[in-house]
Amino acid sequence: MAEENGSNFRQFRDGVIGNNPVLVQLLGMCPTLAVTNTLENALVMGAAVTFVLVMSNLVTSLLRHQIKPHVRILVFTLTIATFVTIADLVLKANMYEVSKKLGPFVPLIIVNCIIICRAEVVAIKNGLARSLADAFGMGLGFTTALSILGAIREILGSGSLTLPGGATSLKLVQLPAAFEPHAWIIMVLPPGAFLTLGVVIGIVNQLRYRKVKGGAA
């Protein structure tokens, strides 16, 4: 039992660090680039994807003995599309402004490769606990990667980092006022997304190489 827990935890941790879906596996690039112009968008998107990922892994894992191999992709797609619609409705009802900013990228979670990939690789072969651990890990890893990008782009693009929430909005970082007139507007525009992600992936690769080298020595 203890070992089982250990492997579940490893499955969870792998999703966040060792096998991060965005920064290492390079899956789910579209929302990663599109909605990371502010931290808030990145967090909401991360939460929506995590929800769909958890529900899809849950359903797939529960039905894994019933699903016939040749119809599995159809079942996955049906499941994912359903939960994405629910997520979309909930966002529209409770966070109208953010859902308007995310626009088509909420329904586009349907074709996010991370989700179908996790259903195919993990959930269809493993029990409930393991599949859920995997879904939460991957979801958290996705959210973390998006938040890092969102934070970098928001700070450089507007000179400050705010977590809006009406009266309770929280200013996390404020660059010196001298920076503001020269804020790198390009960072919140499309090219900034590509450039930031390219550099972040480069840094992550560099860290991984160093780790491998350290391990060998």
Partner: peptide, 16 residues
């Protein structure tokens, strides 16, 4: 560290 996706994304940035 930039080989593969890294440099591709940077070029995509310039293309954008």
């Amino acid at each position: 560290c930039l080989q593969g996706p890294g440099i591709t994304l940077l070029m995509a940035g310039m293309l954008a």
